[in-house]
């Protein structure tokens, strides 16, 4: 349970040290359409990538492409942190990257579509500004892929 009151003091202190602020007033896309009318991309900060592709380095704000049609046959995780459970991911990639669930939603018409590619960052230790260039550039790529909504998962 990640209720800070349930964690040892040293762990709670570490997590609270990650509190911060964003670069300015909160942007807000005023679009209240239901999921069934949206095309989604999944973006995880779990530091995963296709096995054999370039692993993440420490302090790395870049992203890796997760092919939209990739079978569940080999994502590796090179996240810098050792302070979270990896066994859930090893049992079922959907616990950090729920691509099978979103494919099911697409098949049943509960979402309008899925991106042709998904993306993984490694969320660890960088200030928000470090992501500005890569995420802004990624947003352009997403629009070319007709994506209007991102589903974000941490680790």
């Amino acid at each position: 349970m990640v209720r800070l009151s349930d964690l040892p003091d040293f762990e709670a202190r570490h997590l609270l040290a990650k509190n911060g602020a964003l670069p300015g007033p909160m942007p807000w896309v005023a679009d209240t359409r239901p999921a069934s009318e949206r095309r989604f991309v999944i973006i995880t900060t779990a530091g995963i990538h296709p096995a054999g592709s370039a692993p993440f380095a420490s302090n790395d704000a870049s992203y890796r492409v997760l092919p939209g049609d990739a079978a569940a046959d080999g994502f590796a995780m090179s996240h810098a942190s050792v302070n979270f459970d990896r066994s859930g991911f090893q049992r079922d990639v959907n616990v950090v990257f729920p691509v099978d669930r979103f494919r099911e939603l697409e098949e049943s018409g509960q979402i309008a579509g899925l991106a042709s590619r998904h993306y993984s960052f490694m969320g660890a230790g960088l200030l928000p500004e470090a992501y500005e260039d890569t995420v802004t550039s990624l947003a352009g790529i997403l629009k070319q892929d007709r994506v209007d909504t991102a589903f974000l998962t941490p680790v």
Binding site: P27, V29, V135, T149, A150
Partner: peptide, 15 residues
Amino acid sequence: AIAWYLERAGIATTG
């Protein structure tokens, strides 16, 4: 941060 920059660029986010 990723949510903030995506939303600024017009991509809605939830997570």
